[in-house]
Write a protein that binds this DNA or RNA. Structure first.
Lengths: 199, 199
DNA sequence: TATGAAAGTAAGTACTTACTTACATTATGG
DNA sequence: CCATAATGTAAGTAAGTACTTACTTTCATA
């Protein structure tokens, strides 16, 4: 489906998404969506054959955008050090606006009804884990990292970085430390391990 | 609210919860709940003043149970090694039945409307992180671990262990490795770090 | 200026939902 | 065995919801 900039379709899609975030699927009524988009409900149904399809188009639209943004964040050049790369990634993640993170919130709710390969959260996790796996493989090749399983490391790093963000931005947990302190400490843990030296 | 074993109230609460898992809040109609509980809808409303309160009682009930179970899993004796402890915890987590994990699925959906201090996922995370923080503090005191920030380490370990479980059991991602392999590898990473030695 | 597409208005359909009322039935314990 | 409490049945209420139909208005453009 091609959606032109500034078109009625686009306004409806945007409205759907913002109402979806605030009200959830069943709370996002076609009436509210039409109102927010500034069109009549009839127009909405002339453009989209059902509420279900509209919502799924809106999700698709926003999750594609978000995944693109994540892909940018996790891009790397071969020279960058692991520490620098991970610091940068995490800082950029934390600086995403609430608006940009909306899709994450919406994705966390998809615990049923949606086919596995369409679940936003799974698509996000796969994208990031793939990118991280490639990066860590390179760094193992370059001998900056020792011979560990790169895809398990990638899953761990994904977990650490995203779980903080999810707890904080999706579920509203107040963070205990400032970002710089937190980043420094978790990188120290991952880079150097936790065992004491005198053993 | 005291709910006696085998009482009508209990049957209604159980039914609510199982329908809630399969259908979500708006799909869990009082009609379905009553039917599943084997009572009439009228009885349901005589026992609980609204659907909303019923669901919140059911969630409270099941999340308290689950948190108790988690507390058991994360208990420790002062002698146990970090490696052994974390291995045991993760194995026990993975062996929780789908039924026991239902509340986690239900909790992941609570991205709005619910006051922060009642969100199931936040209560779970706080319980585990507290317990892990105490454990790691002890192990730092005992010099098994070096001087790192125990609560950041706890958050990291919580993230690694739970994110795998959530991806797998809540969102349906197929795991790439078997548990033993995975456990061994992520513990190696955390215990020994990832930097190559020759630097 | 005439035409056709896109939008709106008003009304309605068919269904579902949480919750209620009034009354009948069953079960239980003193 | 009888009074009382717990449950069921049947019906209904009031509101909402996705979606439709029929007709009118707006507006760009050829």
């Amino acid at each position: 489906m091609e959606v032109k900039n500034g078109s009625v379709e686009e306004r409806i899609i945007n409205a759907s998404f913002h109402i979806l975030e605030k009200e959830g699927f069943s709370g996002a009524t076609t009436k509210k969506i039409a109102e927010k988009a500034g069109v009549s409900e009839v127009t909405l149904f002339r453009k989209f054959e059902s509420k279900e399809k509209l919502i799924s188009i809106a999700k698709e639209h926003y999750s594609t955008d978000f995944i693109e943004k994540l892909t940018e964040i996790f891009q790397y050049t071969p020279e960058i050090s692991v520490e620098e790369y991970l610091t940068q990634c995490f800082n950029k993640l934390v600086n995403l606006t609430d608006n940009e993170l909306t899709i994450l919130k919406v994705g966390m709710e998809e615990v049923r009804d949606i086919p596995t390969d369409k679940k936003v959260f799974l698509r996000i996790s796969e994208t990031i884990i793939d990118e991280l796996t490639k990066f860590f493989s390179l760094k193992i090749e370059q001998k900056e990292l020792r011979e560990i399983n790169p895809s398990i490391l990638a899953l761990n790093m994904f977990s650490i970085m995203f779980e903080s963000i999810i707890l904080w931005k999706v579920y509203g947990k107040q963070p205990k430390y400032n970002i710089d302190r937190y980043t420094e400490d978790f990188l120290d843990i991952i880079l150097n391990g936790i065992k004491s030296d005198n053993k």
